[in-house]
Amino acid sequence: MAVRAILFDRDGTLVHDVPYNGDPRRVRLVPGARQALDEVRLHGVRTGVVSNQSGIGRGLLTHDAVRAVNARVDQLLGRFGTWRYCPHVAEAGCACRKPEPGLVLSACADLGVPARDAVVIGDIAADVGAAEAAGAQAILVPTPVTLPEEVERAPRVAGSLLDAVRLALS
């Protein structure tokens, strides 16, 4: 089955994780991010970002600050087809916060792609869980915050973002 969309987690996957970052000047790409996105676009695959942003629900960030950081990522990597983020804290019990499927399903709807034709690339179990709950494929790219059991449970694991993109496109 050909992959028609790749959805990326933002923090820890596309950019280095800066907890509750609302400052676009603090955005730093992970190694290989630009090349990874170039390869995805070269294949004509649609792109999106799905990100938990509980700092909004905690009163540490505003929607405008999150959108400014997202815009900076677009500047550095080229425009994504959709941006979906959950502003809620975990205790809110919403359907959008990963590992729930809401962000993935919304992003796929935005892109006009069934979830079964999408791959979610992220760095923690919540990313994998959201993909699986939505019926999408998942690829985990471990970072220092990824727990060993998350790596063991992941259906597919890649050593870098670029490797994950190549795995998704193969």
Rank of each mutant, 00 (worst) to 15 (best):
R166A: 13
S51E: 10
A118S: 06
P148E: 05
Q75L: 03
P142T: 02
D11N: 08
D9G: 08
E100A: 15
L105R: 08
L169C: 15
L162V: 09
P19K: 03
F8Q: 10
G57R: 12
G59A: 14
T13P: 05
P114C: 11
N21L: 15
R72M: 12
V3G: 10
A92N: 11
P101S: 13
V128H: 00
E132P: 03
A131T: 08
A109S: 11
V66C: 02
A71D: 11
P155V: 15
W83I: 14
V120W: 00
L7E: 10
G102Y: 00
E149Q: 10
A107Q: 08
V40D: 06
A131L: 04
E91A: 15
R153H: 08
A36W: 04
G102Q: 01
R166E: 08
A131N: 06
V128P: 01
S160E: 05
I124K: 15
W83K: 02
L147Q: 15
V89G: 01
A68Q: 10
V27P: 03
T47E: 06
P24N: 02
L42Y: 07
D123E: 06
A136I: 07
L162M: 04
N52F: 09
R4W: 03
L111C: 09
P99G: 14
A131I: 08
G122S: 00
T82R: 09
G78F: 00
L105F: 00
P144E: 07
V165L: 11
P101K: 02
V69A: 02
E100R: 14
G48I: 07
C94P: 12
M1F: 06
S170E: 07
T82S: 15
G22H: 04
A115Y: 04
E91F: 00
L14I: 04
V69N: 04
I56H: 11
V157W: 00
G112E: 05
I121R: 01
D163R: 12
G102T: 00
V15G: 08
L103Q: 09
V15K: 04
T143I: 14
V3W: 04
D123Q: 08
Q35D: 12
G78D: 10
A33I: 01
D163S: 09
L161M: 05
L111K: 07
N52Y: 05
S170N: 06
A115I: 04
L14G: 11
L76G: 13
A109F: 06
V113D: 07
